Amino acid sequence: MPAREQRDPLAVARVIGDVLDPFTRSINLRVTYGGNREVTNGCEFKPSQIVNQPTVDVGGDDMRTLFTLVTIF
């Protein structure tokens, strides 16, 4: 096990367990602003950093599968 344990951000934020039942992630999801600033739990952005819409990369090869992304501010 690495020196610094890697935990799922949804578990750290208690979304899994309080809001959602535990599940196994089936695809990767990455959200970035400005092409290089990745959104993670506890990440703070200045208004000038989020003027433009984020880039959302959803993994998976099946283009027939649809997803809904919900953001909470």
Rank of each mutant, 00 (worst) to 15 (best):
M63A: 13
T55G: 13
A3L: 14
L10D: 10
F45P: 09
D18Q: 05
D57L: 05
M63S: 13
R64P: 00
M1P: 01
L66F: 08
P47E: 01
E38R: 14
Q49E: 15
L69Q: 00
T40K: 09
T40N: 09
A3E: 08
L69R: 03
T40C: 06
P54N: 13
L29G: 05
T32I: 10
P47H: 00
N28D: 12
Q49T: 07
G59T: 03
T32Q: 09
D21F: 02
L69D: 00
D57E: 13
S26D: 12
D57G: 00
V15Q: 07
L20R: 09
N52G: 00
S26A: 08
D21P: 03
G42W: 12
N41P: 00
Q53S: 11
E5G: 06
P54R: 13
D61M: 05
P9W: 01
R25F: 01
G17N: 09
T24P: 04
V31F: 04
E44T: 14
V31E: 06
Y33M: 11
P9Q: 07
E44Q: 13
N28A: 09
N41V: 06
T24L: 09
F23P: 01
S48Y: 06
F45A: 07
G60C: 02
N41C: 03
A11W: 04
L69Y: 05
G60N: 02
R4C: 08
L69W: 00
I50R: 12
E44W: 08
V70C: 05
P9Y: 01
N41E: 06
T55V: 15
Q53C: 06
P9H: 02
K46W: 05
I16S: 02
D57K: 03
